[in-house]
């Protein structure tokens, strides 16, 4: 399969990255090159092989149900590009 401009537009949209029209074709070429190179993976027989879920052999740790965090709205908002009354502010979202 090869990556075309429409695919690039769709992926850019899903990635929420504005891609200028003139970048679509070059990007399609770059991605196509990478996926062509990756195609060698199809040589590998993976029948019956479990996908790796973690390289770490241990149980998921669990914490106790204790409140240890929060009450830090000022620190939380300190880096916010726009905030008001401890709310983050964004352009109006239409539901």
């Amino acid at each position: 399969m090869s990556v075309d401009k429409d695919t690039v537009r769709r992926i850019a949209r899903l990635s929420r990255i504005a891609l200028p029209e003139e970048r679509c074709a070059p990007m399609a070429g770059e991605l196509d090159g990478i996926f062509k190179w990756v195609e060698q993976l199809n040589e590998v027989n993976v029948d019956g092989v479990q996908p790796m879920t973690s390289v770490v052999e241990q149980r998921l740790k669990m914490r106790d149900d204790v409140v240890t965090d929060g009450n830090s709205a000022n620190a939380l908002m300190a880096n916010a590009p726009q905030g008001e009354d401890h709310f983050f502010v964004v352009p109006k979202v239409v539901e």
């Binding site: 993976l41 590998v44 993976v46 092989v49 790796m52 879920t53 390289v55």
Partner: peptide, 10 residues
């Protein structure tokens, strides 16, 4: 497929 190949690499 990549995660399966990871299993094989390990």
């Amino acid at each position: 497929r990549a995660q399966k190949i990871r299993t094989l690499i390990l």
